[in-house]
Amino acid sequence: MRLDKTELALVGLAVLLLLGGMVAPGWLIFLVTIALAKALVVQGVVMQMKAGLVSFGQGLFYCVGGYAVGMGGPFLGISAGLVLLAIGVVAAVGLAMVLGLLLTRYREIFFAMLSLAFSMILYGVLVKSQELGSTDGFNVNNWTLLGQTIAGGETATHVVFLLTVVAAAVVAFLLHRYYRSSVGMTCEAIRENEVRVEYLGLSPRWIQYANYVAAAGVSALGGGLTALAAGHVDPDMAYWTTSGEFIFIALLGGTGSVLAPFLAAIVFSLVRTYAIEFVPHAWQMILGFTLLGIVVFLPKGLWSLFTRHRPEAPVVPAAPQKTSTGGAGA
């Protein structure tokens, strides 16, 4: 198997992160873990953006993934971390397979609003049901990894970090391949012109559906890892402003590379850490102005700063289709 530049960079970055994890202070490891886990949720948003859809409700799957980890212990008696993560992904995929039947009929703002509505439904159910933890949510503690109990504290931080880096690298690797596959490229084609895709003999709706379901799974994994890292889940995971944050990070990074959401999420987390400390009531304002700046000046996100600026079109010889006009008979 030959690796391209992005794939090599991925492997390199993962190794670097793991090495860095041995020496970095706990707070930084924690910050990076949360950022990478959230970046996985953002990957789900980006997958849909590439297909032309903006989900204002990706928090739904983030929440499902998180609650699977939070509820697996008290409700199912499961403590194995990997199993809890898998339950979250399976639950999210199952839910997406149902919702996707309806959602894939919608585009543009209707998709945005309907996806928002679904995540708010979950929020509403969680907040109002005592059995589901109400506004308090659940604590995640005493889970195990390959039979070892992860009690919390330093060890837990390191273990989740390791888990998250590996998961992020694997998902990113697969996504990178996916974006260049027939389905991935056809998603972009659907964004560009759905009518043409239909007239090529493909079902845009089926492809959107597959993409939506896959994105749900990826986002749920991010939610599960966040729950393990933060040790807590609550209904705010499904609140629409959480989804707004994911869109922000997605736009900040852009859709240019599978690495972009990770970069953007780390930048986002670092800036937030300091902003909340120094200007607590201006953090959202900073986000707002940054978002406007991105829309106006960097529509392809931060990642476009790292890519070589290519001219829009190569120099083209004059009138390429000019040939003899006498060839065709009447």
């Binding site: 703002i109 869109i247 304002m285 707002g288 978002l291």
Partner: peptide
């Protein structure tokens, strides 16, 4: 601009106004 982009632009406005009110 695109309708969906206008949603994002007004979302940015929302973030700005929320903190402006706090200030």
């Amino acid at each position: 601009r695109d309708e969906i982009l206008m949603v994002i632009i007004t979302y940015a406005l929302l973030l700005i106004l929320e903190d402006a009110m706090k200030l």
